[in-house]
Amino acid sequence: MTATNWARLAIVVCVGLIIQVAILDEIVIFGAHPDIMILIVAAAGIVAGPSRGAIVGFVAGLIADLFVVTPYGLGALCFVVVGFAVGLVRSISSEQEIDAPKTTLCIVAAAIGTLLYALLGSLIGQTGMFKAAPAAIIVVALGACVLSYPVLRVVKWALTGSVRSRSTYAVPRGGSAAG
């Protein structure tokens, strides 16, 4: 991946963060709101593979953690796992020539990632997170249904410079797709 790709991805993460705090946080349904940051991470895993998905997850998680009061690093830990797992699933399905729908993968990743966040939070003693999880999972998944397609396109543009659909994740010039 070139410096231009990383710069474009940084812009996407920053714009995603602004959309999250200024717009999506206002759309509260049953006490929860859609989450675009987890979708960006899942999309990065799909487009660039598990390693780069995890790296994007780590950075995006650290940035997102700046705007919440939960322990710093919790979001990063969760996003690392999400970025890696989604990339791995996409990578395996590509190797076995199974064309897993990318938007569906994003939606499932967002829902499981939200559950993982609640689970990790509960493990480190953050009370009440498990109770809030069902509503959060449903709302995040519903939000992902609407947002995953545009997010995938934008992340694909950031990482490859193209928005054309391809059945497998992007293979960067001169390197392995899986990073």
């Binding site: 705090v21 206002e26 919440v68 939070g121 509503a135 995040v140």
Partner: peptide, 8 residues
């Protein structure tokens, strides 16, 4: 603004 996390 409201909370930026679904868990707080």
């Amino acid at each position: 603004a409201d909370a930026s996390s679904n868990f707080e």
